[in-house]
Simulated scan of single mutants.
Amino acid sequence: MHCDYYEAEQCRSCTLLEVPYADQLARKDARTREALDGVPTLWEEPLASAQSGFRNKAKMVAGGTVAEPRLGILRADGAVQDLRECPLHEPVVAAALPVLAEFMTAARLVPYDVTSRRGELKYVLVTASPAGELLVRFVLRSTESVPRIRKHLPSLTDRLPHLAVASVNLHPTHSAVLEGEEEIVLTERALLPMRVGDVEMYLRPQGFFQTSSQMAGALYTLAASWTAELTYRTAWDLYCGVGGFALHLARPGVEVIGVESSQEAVAAATASAADAGGGVRFEAGDATAFALGAAQEPDLVVVNPPRRGIGADLAGWLEGSGVRHVLYSSCNVDSLARDLTAMPSLRTVRAQVLDMFPHTEHFETLVLLER
């Protein structure tokens, strides 16, 4: 992939860009094998991604001025490097970014300056569905700009007819956190359909979805394929997000419960379950607390934790439980290896690297464990 920003040394986020893509895949596969050394595994070949145009979301820092806005990343000097032409984004996202920059001028959205701590607009967050619809979020310090955003929203919709959901997120504090707790939905619709294969999922403004729709589909398809021959009547999807694994594991006569700390994600997952029919339900709560407090153990547990992994308490519970199979999706092979070491009675029978984040050291690993 060629990137003018990288060549000009304006952005070096893609740390492996100069490494041939086949070598990137081999490097990530070797990294996983090394981390899981000594674990008996059926190793699948790493699953490749598109090398450009694969990111379904853009998390853009707002900078510059009202007259000359920028959308990109924060530089070391506190200024914003514009990255509207980043080749990683899906075409529909890339096409929306210049329009959103012009909207900043039309609605007089003053970019937040981290050095002076003045201004209103901190981030513009854009997510595209597989069908090409958009969810756009404006992260603001206060509600001062909300009336102007509402006033100019019809013109934005005219220019972006595939804009399905727009919202404002209020983030009043000066911190490195991306967003605040309060969300104001500006459109009639609050749910963005994210269809993956035969499953219709929904995304709310504060919900999480995988960075690449292509690789998300591959991940859920693998999960369904790897568990197709397993016998289970009950299953848990812990750290379930918007319910991707749970919805793909549903089958007649099986009870599936998804657990997620985000209320927004649970609301979206519940809407998906209503469309899909019975057998799947979702609860808001802590995954570890849910497992430790459950009256009965399931036959199958899926975990898809953040980078820190599932932790000692949940790993210890799984080790001492009677759960027959665990499907572990990890974005950090080091925490994955640590968690597997804490569960020696669960043997790894299958593993595969999925290149969710090309040109970086990050990737997803899917592992099937059997007691």
Rank of each mutant, 00 (worst) to 15 (best):
M1I: 14
M1D: 13
Y6P: 02
E7S: 13
E7M: 11
E7D: 15
E9P: 10
C14F: 05
A22C: 13
D23H: 12
L25D: 01
K28D: 07
A30N: 11
L42H: 14
W43H: 08
P46M: 04
A48K: 09
S52K: 14
R55M: 03
R55V: 00
N56Y: 01
N56Q: 06
K57Y: 05
G63L: 02
G64D: 10
E68K: 15
E68L: 13
L71R: 01
I73Y: 10
L74F: 11
R75N: 14
R84P: 10
E85C: 12
P87H: 09
H89K: 09
H89A: 03
H89D: 08
E90V: 11
L100I: 00
E102H: 03
M104Q: 08
A106Y: 07
A107M: 04
A107L: 05
R108N: 11
R108L: 08
L109P: 08
L109I: 00
V110P: 03
G119N: 04
A131G: 14
G132K: 05
F138A: 07
L140M: 06
I149W: 03
R150C: 01
K151Q: 15
K151D: 13
H152C: 11
L153D: 01
P154D: 08
D158P: 09
R159I: 09
H162C: 14
A164Q: 14
V165R: 01
N169D: 05
L170N: 00
H174D: 13
S175N: 08
A176T: 15
E181K: 04
E181F: 06
E183A: 01
I184R: 04
V185L: 07
R189D: 15
R189Q: 14
L192V: 12
M194W: 11
M201I: 13
M201N: 12
L203G: 02
P205C: 07
S212P: 09
S212C: 09
Q214A: 15
L230A: 05
R233W: 07
W236Y: 01
W236I: 00
D237L: 07
L238I: 10
G241C: 08
G243K: 01
F245T: 07
L249F: 10
A250V: 12
G253T: 12
E255V: 13
G258M: 02
G258T: 04
G258S: 07
E264H: 07
E264T: 11
E264N: 08
A267S: 14
T270Q: 11
A271F: 09
S272W: 00
A273E: 07
R281F: 12
F282G: 06
E283Q: 15
G285D: 10
A287G: 11
A287F: 06
G293S: 12
A295K: 13
P298S: 04
D299N: 10
L300D: 01
V303F: 05
N304T: 10
R308L: 12
R308K: 15
R308A: 15
R308T: 14
G309D: 03
I310R: 02
G311K: 02
A312M: 07
L314N: 04
L318Y: 04
L318R: 03
V326F: 02
N332K: 08
D334A: 15
R338Y: 09
D339S: 06
D339C: 06
L340R: 00
M343L: 03
M343K: 00
R350C: 02
Q352D: 00
V353P: 04
V353H: 02
M356G: 03
P358G: 02
E364P: 03
L369S: 08
